[in-house]
Design a protein around this nucleic acid. Structure first.
Lengths: 344, 344
DNA sequence: CCATGTTATGTAAACGTTTACAATTAACAT
DNA sequence: ATGTTAATTGTAAACGTTTACATAACATGG
């Protein structure tokens, strides 16, 4: 079962077996054969627990996301996996969903050697939730050590700005999305954001507001609604929007997920898309194209984001200094059929 | 940094510190205070690597699924997480997507202590891909040890039938779905399956065929198409179906994902759903309700499946004998607007 | 104050690797 | 042969915990 048995079986020392496993080129052909034979015979498989312990690394990377089900994240994940596999890492996933795990609890994971590094894809609180077990990683950085963390596709709060990120230019992209509606001739444009504390959508809201301002258009009372990043939330938000006396002729949803909800609600009211109301989303997730009508949206290069994020993290884990600058990847406006000039 | 430093700082032995961490009730109040103080002062956080090594368990469970993005799986994951968190496990996720990792490579993960147990949500090959590094877990079972594995929502091949599963009655449910179409008066009913080697959908196909046979309806040449479990695959399959001279008036898709693709293709041909063609899916994933028209489908209790699977695995990891019987959870036909009586 | 039982703490071994260093062997030129 | 160097193998310590066992401290009742 253990290296020791194999050594005995092969008539060599445990060091030789270990070497055979780690650098076979350093053991003589003849010995190699003996050892391999012993391994086959004993059915040995090296204890990863002991190995990782001895080497002081877990070979695990923790990925924190808000919802596994999100089709956009799944693209990012695929990119992460690709390089993880190449670099010999396994991926540990944590969903923040309802619980309010703070940043420090994740940082602690690397200090307590549960993972070698962390990728943050979700908005998490930069502060620890009170009552934590006396561990405060953010402060412990005083030791000089910063846990290897990379933030993918997420706006960074000032407190977390020590860490690098890989993302799209959310403000610019949102500006472009709103700009598209403005170019079509829309004047009454609403915005469905995430939650008020979601960093993810706050930059997009900023872009929306900037575009409106640039065009000299007002953002009327009630035109910015929270959609909770969910389908149902977006339906509620849309209902509010449709009840407004200055009902918008176009809605910019901060995520495709919410756009789907909005479209559903609009149809439920017997209105047409894009005839009565235009809709534009953000993410270009898998189901955007099969929506009816197919959804106009901003595409993010999900896999690329994943790959770059993981690559950067790998460098950080190797000990390289990767700085704290955000890496901006290109977005793209994807024109489909959910947007059109306003009717009037 | 280590327990040793804390011990020195607190003026106690390392055993006491360890006990303080694992069973504080066994250390005197006064000592507890000293130790806690020392921990705070040194900023100690216990090395999980060493701990797991010593205890011989990883506290990790590997979940194998075909695609993270699948909204149905994400429901299952949520259930798994809930009990994982409660039982102190973290979740390692592996996506089979393109690579053909076989069962043995996963079984090896528990023998090599990379994970304590495995949950299989995807169809994987029961055999090892050749060229594996001399490890054959399936044979090593001769040692009497069976790695703790539970199969969720998946039909089991004979080779894997040593392992328990938690799933819906796929045959019965598919029968019900096809039956619904038959009850509506459809006679020409097509079926879009997964891949030919996908265990997932083969039972559903069986149910479909059984229902057709029961009703004395023929399954004409070309009425069963492979949709590759993907949107695009389903679009291609649907295209084939629409080109048939005996064009079906209803299509039963083995998954909602494919149903979305089918609907998209049908609309692209200028046909109406359910007017010209009825569609029924399977899974009741999140986006089924927001499709246009909302999709009639078979709902599976995703979270419940996840919970039960994980619970059973926990028992297995604890060493209990959990048998190999499948646990069948209830499904439910969800009537929405994508099905209607045939026009003629 | 002693005997006794209970509870708290310390000592030291163990878990299965990896790896620095020492020791041996092989290879080769003299 | 003999020395010199390089390649291979062995010895043993180390990694940070947990835990069985031994010991010490304390409390209780006589």
């Amino acid at each position: 079962m253990s290296i020791k048995q194999v050594a005995k079986e092969a008539g060599v020392s445990i060091a030789t077996v270990s070497r055979y496993l780690n650098s076979p080129e350093h053991v003589r052909e003849k010995t190699r054969l003996k050892v391999q034979e012993a391994i086959d015979k004993t059915g040995f498989s090296r204890n990863a627990l002991a190995r990782n312990f001895r080497r002081g690394k877990t070979s695990l990377v923790m990925v924190v996301l808000s919802a596994v089900g999100d089709p956009f994240f799944s693209g990012v994940m695929r990119g992460i996996w690709r390089v993880a596999r190449r670099e010999g890492y396994s991926i540990l996933i944590s969903e923040t969903q309802f619980n309010t795990t703070g940043f420090n609890e994740y940082a602690d994971m690397v200090f307590s050697k549960q993972a070698d590094g962390i990728i943050l894809l979700a908005s998490i609180s930069p502060f620890m939730r009170d009552g934590g077990a006396g561990s405060s990683a953010l402060e412990r950085r005083a030791d000089g050590t910063v846990p290897p963390v990379v933030i993918g596709c997420e706006t960074v709060t000032p407190e977390l700005s020590h860490f690098p990120s890989v993302r799209v230019d959310n403000i610019g992209a949102a500006r472009e999305a709103a700009g598209h509606l403005i170019d079509l001739g829309h004047k009454r444009i609403a915005f469905i954001s995430g939650a008020h504390d979601s960093l993810l959508t706050s930059d997009r809201e900023r872009g929306y507001r900037a575009a409106m301002e640039d065009a000299g258009l007002p953002v009327a009372e009630g035109w910015v609604q929270e959609g909770q990043l969910s389908i149902d939330g977006a339906r509620r938000a849309t209902r509010e929007l449709l009840a407004l006396e200055s009902r918008p002729s176009a809605i910019f949803c901060a995520t495709d997920e919410m756009a789907l909800g909005a479209m559903h609600e609009i149809r439920a009211h017997g209105l047409e898309i894009p005839g009565d109301i235009s809709i534009i989303g953000f993410d270009d997730m898998r189901y955007a194209a099969t929506a009816s009508p197919p959804l106009t949206t901003i595409a993010q290069p999900a896999e690329e984001i994943g790959e770059h994020t993981m690559e950067r993290l790998c460098r950080a884990m190797r000990g390289d200094d990767i700085g704290a600058e955000p890496e901006v990847v290109p977005h793209r406006l994807v024109l489909r059929s959910s947007t059109a000039p306003p009717r009037e």
